[in-house]
Each structure stands twice: as structure tokens, then as C-alpha cells.
């Protein structure tokens, strides 16, 4: 009987320095856990996250990228999250056209106090990526 190697997704979770990270900190304060294979990465504001930083992990070995920032109207920089939403719409459009599974990118607002929402997102996304399977790009060395 062969042992199946369980697929452990490589996930990058971009969070803004205000609400996004705040959500993570609140989760920690409440001793809530999220999967270890979800790698947190802090950016100042989701609006400052370049499109390239979503594309690059997907090419270099990540199976999914999730981005969280403040709710509309709550952005510390007023409208960064609105710009992020447009930029992510653009990236998803490109991925969709090229059959590169835009579902591997999630954008969800997480407020400073929403610890539960933060860990639920990480866990749900992890399960979601497990269903999708490994990213076909991650084994390609000719990228």
C-alpha cells in the first residue's frame, strides 16, 4: 500500500499594517490558531501592494495568495483599499484570461477587531486551495 503524500498548500497572506495585521493580533490575543502553512506578510496598506507581488508568489511556488485590509471607508489612508480592489480585479482578470485560476487569489476585508474572521479566512482559504490542488506553475522551471 503506497503512502499518499498529502498536499500541504503554500499560502501567502498579505495583510495591511492597520486592520489586517490588527485582525491577526486580535486572533493571537484570543489564542485563535490558523494553519502553519499560511505565511503572513505585512504591507503598509493593501493599496500599496503591487500587482507583481501577487503574481510573483504564484509563479515561484505559492499555491494561493490571500489579501486582507480594512473595510471600505475604514482605510487608514482613506482609499487604499478601494484602489486595492481595482488592482486585484485587474490581476484576477489577467489570470482568468490566461486560465491561471483567479480563484487562487482571495480579497477579503478584515477589521482590527475581527480575529475570528482572520483565522476563518486563513483556514477556509487553506481548505479551498487543497480542493484546487497544487498550482500547476509551481513545478515549472521554465517560467
Amino acid at each position: 500500500m503506497s503512502e499518499e503524500k498529502t498536499f500541504v498548500p503554500s499560502i501567502v497572506y498579505f495583510m495591511c499594517s492597520w486592520c489586517g495585521s490588527g485582525g491577526a493580533e486580535t486572533a493571537a490575543a484570543h489564542h485563535l490558531h490558523y494553519p502553519e502553512n499560511v505565511l503572513p506578510s505585512r504591507v503598509n496598506c493593501t493599496g500599496a501592494l503591487p500587482a507583481v507581488h501577487i503574481l510573483r508568489p504564484l509563479i515561484e511556488g505559492a499555491d494561493g495568495v490571500v489579501i486582507s485590509g480594512c473595510h471600505p471607508g475604514d482605510c487608514h489612508y482613506d482609499d487604499g483599499n478601494f484602489r486595492a480592489r481595482r488592482r486585484i480585479a485587474l490581476v484576477k482578470s489577467l489570470l482568468d484570461t490566461l486560465g491561471l485560476e483567479p480563484e487562487r487569489v482571495w480579497f477579503r476585508y478584515v477589521a482590527h477587531g475581527e480575529g475570528r474572521r482572520f483565522v476563518d479566512t486563513a483556514a477556509a482559504f487553506n481548505e479551498h486551495i487543497k480542493t484546487l490542488g497544487p498550482n500547476p506553475l509551481k513545478t515549472r522551471s521554465d517560467t
Partner: peptide
Amino acid sequence: ARAASKGALRFAPDTLLFHLGRASHMAL
């Protein structure tokens, strides 16, 4: 490290990233 993880790394690297990234910068 990237070459080790994938068995090889096309060099100069980031060919696909260039095209997708350029698209993300100018497609609009």
C-alpha cells in the same frame, strides 16, 4: 535556492513574471 526547489531555473529568470507583470502595469 529557486533552481534547487524546481530542479532548474530558467536563466535569466522571471520571463513569465515579466510578461504577466508588464500586462498588470499596462493592460489597462
